[in-house]
C-alpha cells in the first residue's frame, strides 16, 4: 500500500506539533490512518502531546548526532514502521537546529513552519528549510498587525517564490484544513527507495564532530574554516 509522506520542519517552538495535530484533526478518520515521527536532539515531549490527542507517534532522539543526518539515515525505518501499522499518511516532524539543513526530500510534500512573532528576517535566516519547502505555514499571526503579516509573507516569497503560504492558528486550528487538503493531494510512495534529499547536508568532519572538547589549533583536525575578521 502506498504511503503519503510529509516532512515538517521549523525552528523550535514555532508550533510544528500544534499545526500537525490540528491538520490531522481537521480530516475525518485521518487519526486512525496516520502516524507521526518526531525527530529531536536531546529530549522530546511532543510524543506525549500527540498521544494525548489520540495520534500514534514515535520519537527519534539523535543524541550527539546531527539531527538532520539522523533523520536521513532513519527515514527508511520509519517508512517500514508506517507500513507495518498500515498507515496511509506518515508525518515526520523535525526541529531545524542549525538552520543549515532541511529534511525535505524530492517529490515529498515539504512543509516549513515559521512563527510570525519571531522577527521579520526569520524567513531569510532560516535557510533551506524555507527555501526548499512546498508549503510555508505561518503561526501566531493572529497576534500581529495585518501589515506585519503581509511583510512576513512577502519575505517568505522573496526566498521561495514558488511555495504556498498558509496562515494557521495552532490553537484554534483555523486554516489547518487547507494544509490537510494539500496533504490529501500529496504524492504517495510504495517504497522509500529512490528518495533523494532536496538539499545536501553539510560537510561536518572535524575533530569536534568526534568528541574533541579542547579549544586550540592543535586539536583541530579535519575540515575547518577560519573566520575572516
Amino acid at each position: 500500500m502506498a504511503i503519503k509522506l510529509i516532512t515538517v520542519s521549523g525552528p523550535p517552538s514555532s508550533g510544528k506539533t500544534s499545526v500537525i495535530i490540528k491538520m490531522i484533526e481537521s480530516l475525518p478518520h485521518l487519526k486512525d490512518r496516520c502516524g507521526v515521527i518526531k525527530f529531536d536532539c536531546l529530549s522530546a515531549l511532543d510524543e506525549e502531546q500527540y498521544t494525548k490527542n489520540g495520534i500514534v507517534a514515535q520519537t527519534g532522539l539523535a543524541g550527539n548526532l546531527c539531527p538532520d543526518h539522523y533523520f536521513v539515515s532513519n527515514i527508511e525505518a520509519c517508512f517500514v514502521w508506517a507500513r507495518e501499522k498500515n498507515f496511509e499518511v506518515l508525518v515526520t516532524e523535525s526541529a531545524g537546529l542549525c538552520n543549515r539543513c532541511a529534511p525535505h526530500l524530492k517529490e515529498v510534500l515539504a512543509v516549513c513552519i515559521l512563527d510570525n512573532l519571531s522577527g521579520i528576517n526569520t524567513p531569510l535566516k532560516t535557510g533551506p528549510m524555507v527555501k526548499m519547502a512546498d508549503v510555508v505555514v505561518v503561526t501566531k499571526s493572529d497576534l500581529v498587525s495585518q501589515a506585519e503579516r503581509e511583510v512576513f509573507r512577502f519575505k517568505i516569497q522573496q526566498v521561495n517564490s514558488k511555495c504556498k503560504v498558509l496562515f494557521i492558528n495552532g490553537i484554534t486550528g483555523q486554516g489547518a484544513d487547507r494544509l490537510a487538503k494539500l496533504v490529501v493531494n500529496a504524492n504517495d510512495f510504495e517504497t522509500s527507495e529512490n528518495l533523494k534529499l532536496r538539499f545536501s547536508m553539510p560537510a561536518a568532519l572535524c575533530s569536534y564532530c568526534l568528541g574533541e572538547t579542547r579549544v586550540g589549533e592543535d586539536f583541530q583536525i579535519g575540515l575547518n574554516r577560519k573566520i575572516k575578521l
Binding site: 493572529d142 497576534l143 495585518q146
Partner: peptide, 9 residues
C-alpha cells in the same frame, strides 16, 4: 484588524 493584534516589530 482585531482587538488582540499588536505591533511586534
Amino acid at each position: 484588524i482585531t482587538q488582540n493584534m499588536n505591533f511586534v516589530l
